[in-house]
Structures are given as structure tokens and as C-alpha cells.
Write a protein that binds this DNA or RNA. Structure first.
Lengths: 263, 263
DNA sequence: ACCCCAAAAATAATCGATTAGCGTTCCGGC
DNA sequence: GCCGGAACGCTAATCGATTATTTTTGGGGT
């Protein structure tokens, strides 16, 4: 029983050495990607047996994967109450944004202060990758998000604090989830691209911490605002819909539902 | 098959509604406490079957608990490689300390700015509980750490950012682990007690953010320094010991090893 | 009609047996 | 003696059956 790695969708910013050699981790990674990248709607109930059937693996494997995700906060759970994809809310997004700004500017400041030549190189590299990915429209789905994430992380990487970086990674991923949940994200890409360039110049070329932090904060804030606007516009669109407390049964997204095995 | 709650050691700052109704969570919580509170040495290998035997529960239950802890970072694991209590290091402690100072002062500043009457009340309450716990020497083990943690968290609680608070909680717990790992912690308690009072006065009574942050930073830094000093002194004590790569098999601490069931 | 309780159905949790993978040891070739 | 690889033992991973718990359903009773 081997797992074909090509079957597994690529996930960005994954645990460093985390190669996927067990069914449990495979399920975990796929589900994680599906939640983070918006293929699984918030609030969706995940029944262990259903997921197990979808993936063609045993209950235990799924259970463990779900348990991990719950610990991470991507799923919510209570004993004997099953698992459910974590909810999203405007308040959460706003808080997430503010916290990210606080921590990311802090880290950026340190990185600019401490960063050596190799840091500059890595950031430049990430920046160029981002630019080229943005130019070539064909760069598909997650690839695009990966280079974006890598650019942001490369910028702060030289801050010298593993704990700060770990925290930032988590926050960034969560924010990514909101971004990917919004279909109109691509619409605001235009401005964003320019901000990335400004950010790169201020941080690496000019080494102006104040300026770089300001750009970063603005960049983050604007993205969130655009997200919220889009979401409100969308909510206004579907007026008739009553506030149905119980959602209809939902199925896993294509990516997640794809069978795992090569049997 | 019921779980007797009195058998479960109290854990501080636990998931809000997280009552412990399943064997898995019971194992999870006990183990978590044992790691956080230093009953389980860093690097200890945790074999699923051994733990299962100790607790008299099945493999799966233990596996899931361990998986959760691994996701949290309290255990490290790789597929097919088992679980091991996360290592500790001087660098990690220093980084943890600095990050805590950064985030906790940020949160404290916001709390002082935003905190209302009920915040002041809660902090005062926590402070008084801390004082009385410190005076009565008989206040046993974890009770003492709980009131300490509660005081620190109460201070920043009014910052208004769940994400920041969640992050701080995690960092605080990790730092707590280092504190509890050090047997000589009680020695430095004297100074610390006074700092708590200063902190309380500056933050709540005077509402002087700068001053309060300074005290908090100093308090945190001093504690870490004392910890490191103690650890170095201890390391100097046992000179002969070669850097044994492989530790002898270790058993669970009393608390952790205690059977779970009332069978 | 509404509410409360009991039985039934659904599904979460637990279990121990089974299978697979890693690490080590032991053997033979160099 | 040293190296490489097959065989073994230990433990991690997986499985599906079993047990416990929650949720739903279906009747009374008010």
C-alpha cells in the first residue's frame, strides 16, 4: 500500500521535513489544504465515517487527522460532538489582520536591522519569483499563493526569532484562508502587485524600516478591506436567503474527495 | 466506563469549554500537564503501547492524544518514528522570552488603553489571589502556577485581540514549562513577588503604560536570567557525565502514570 | 398545538488484532 | 577487519468490529 505523492495537492509552507509517508498525514495534509484554500466551506460538518469512505481509509486514520486539525484550530470539536470546519467572521478577520500587522512589522523591523547578504538574496529571489508568477497568468492556483507566501516569509525570515516566525506563519495561513474563500480576490491583485514592489525596495534596497513597515501595514489593511467589501457586496446580492441555521449536507471538494490510493 | 474527574490533575488555562468526557482527551490533558509542568523530561520517548499500558486504555486513544500534542509542538514526531517530548534549549528559552516580552507589552499597552472597570476588577481579583497564594506556603504545586498565570493573563485580557491572547497563552505555557523544569525556581520567588505588585500598581492603579511595560519586560527578563543561571550552575555540578546521546528508558512521572480508571 | 419523555437511529469513541516500516544485528564477501 | 545487505525484532500505523453517546423520531400528556 503505497501513496502516490503526485496525488497529493501541493501545500505551501509545510512542516519543514514533513514528507508524507503515512495515510494519516496524507489525509491530514489534504484536508488542511482544503480548509486553508477554501475548498471546504466553513461550518461544514466532517463526519469521520464519511471522510473515511471518501478517502478509502479507515476510521482511525481519519480520526487522527481530524484531531490534529482540531488542535490546530482549523476544525472545532467537542467530545462526542464530532468535527466541524472552523467558522469565519468579520471580527476574526479584522483581529487577524491587526495582529498580523503588529507582529509582521515587528519582525520586518528586526529583519531589516539584522538581515545579511544572504537574506537580501533570498528576498530578491522570492520577489522575482512572485513577479514572474504574477505576469504569467497561466501560473495555476496554489502555485501563485505559494510564491506570495514565500515572499512575505522571506522578508521577515531574518528577524532571528523562530517563535515569532512560527506565529506569523500560522497567522498568515489563516489570513490566506479568508483570501481564498473570497472569489473576487483576483480583482484586487492589481494594486497589490505594486505594493509588493514598493515593499521590496523599501525593505531590501533602501533598508528603511519605517517606510517598509508602513507599506506592509497598508498592504495588509487594504487587502482585508477589499475582502470585506467583496464579501458584503456578495451578502447583499443574496437577500432572499433566510438565515438557515442548519446547512444542507455538503460534500468534499473535488481536490479533497479524490481518492488517495493507487491500489 | 466513567472517568473520575478527581483523578485528573488540574490544568490551568485550558480550552474554555473543554470538559473532559472522553478517554482520549483525558489522556491528552494529563500528558499535556505532565509535559508543561515538567513531570516528563524533555526528549523522553513516548511509546504508544507503553503509555496505553500505563493508562489502561487502548492504542488508538493514546495515539490520538499523542497526535494532538505533537501538533501543538509539545511532542515531536515523524511518520513511523514515534513520539518524543519536545527538547528544550537555551536558545529556545531566550527566544521565547524575547517574543513574550514583545507581545505581552504590546497587549498590555492596549489593555491599559482600552480596559474598563470590569477589567480593573478582574486584575485586582487575580492579583489578590496571587498574593494570598504566595503568602500561604501550603498552597500546593499547580494551584500556585495557576494563579500566577491567571494574573498575567488578566492583565492583558482587555487588549481586545483574541489572536494575540491565544498566542500569548501558548507562549506563556511554554515558558512555564521551563520554569517548572527548574527545581530552583522557588529561590527567585522573593523578588518576583514585589515585581508583581509594582506591575499591578502601574497598570491598573496608575494606568501608566510605559512604566507597566517596562516592569513587565524586566520581570520576564529577570526570571529567564535566573532560570538560565540556575541551569548552568546545575550543569556545572555534574561534570563527569558524558553527553550520552541515548537516554536510559524513562518512566512516566507519578502523576502521569496514575491509572485513569475507576474500574 | 406545544412540550416532555422514551425508543430508535446516527455517529463518535474505543478497542485489540493485524499489517507495515524502521533500525539493528548478524552473516558473508571483500 | 570492514562494508553491504538480508533477516529479525520492535513499534508505529491501519483496520473494522464493538461500545458509548448524542441526536432524531414518535408518541402520549397537557
Amino acid at each position: 500500500m503505497k501513496i502516490d505523492p503526485t496525488e497529493l495537492p501541493q501545500l505551501p509552507m509545510q512542516t519543514v521535513g514533513g514528507s508524507t509517508k503515512s495515510l494519516t498525514s496524507a489525509v491530514y495534509h489534504i484536508l488542511r489544504g482544503s480548509i486553508l484554500y477554501g475548498h471546504l466551506e466553513p461550518e461544514t460538518k466532517l463526519t469521520v465515517s464519511h471522510v473515511a469512505t471518501q478517502f478509502r481509509v479507515s476510521l482511525s486514520a481519519v480520526r487522527e487527522a481530524l484531531a490534529r486539525l482540531a488542535t490546530e484550530g482549523l476544525l472545532v470539536t467537542a467530545d462526542h460532538r464530532g468535527f466541524r470546519v472552523a467558522a469565519v467572521s468579520k471580527e476574526d478577520l479584522l483581529d487577524l489582520t491587526q495582529t498580523r500587522i503588529d507582529l509582521e512589522t515587528l519582525a520586518l523591523r528586526r529583519a531589516i536591522e539584522k538581515g545579511d547578504k544572504s537574506w537580501e538574496d533570498r528576498v530578491r529571489e522570492a520577489f522575482e519569483a512572485l513577479q514572474s508568477a504574477e505576469r504569467t497568468a497561466r501560473s495555476l492556483g496554489q502555485r501563485r499563493y505559494m510564491v506570495h507566501a514565500e515572499f512575505h516569509m522571506a522578508l521577515v525570515e531574518a528577524c532571528g526569532s523562530p517563535w515569532l516566525l512560527r506565529t506569523l506563519t500560522m497567522l498568515f495561513e489563516r489570513a490566506e484562508r479568508y483570501r481564498l474563500l473570497s472569489v473576487t480576490y483576483s480583482k484586487i491583485r492589481g494594486e497589490v502587485e505594486h505594493e509588493h514592489e514598493e515593499l521590496y525596495k523599501a525593505a531590501v534596497l533602501e533598508r528603511d524600516a519605517d517606510k517598509a513597515c508602513e507599506i506592509l501595514a497598508k498592504h495588509t489593511r487594504l487587502t482585508t478591506e477589499a475582502l470585506l467589501e467583496a464579501s458584503e457586496r456578495r451578502a447583499a446580492g443574496r437577500t432572499a436567503k433566510p438565515p438557515s441555521v442548519r446547512k444542507p449536507p455538503q460534500r468534499l471538494a473535488k481536490t479533497a474527495a479524490r481518492s488517495l490510493r493507487t491500489r
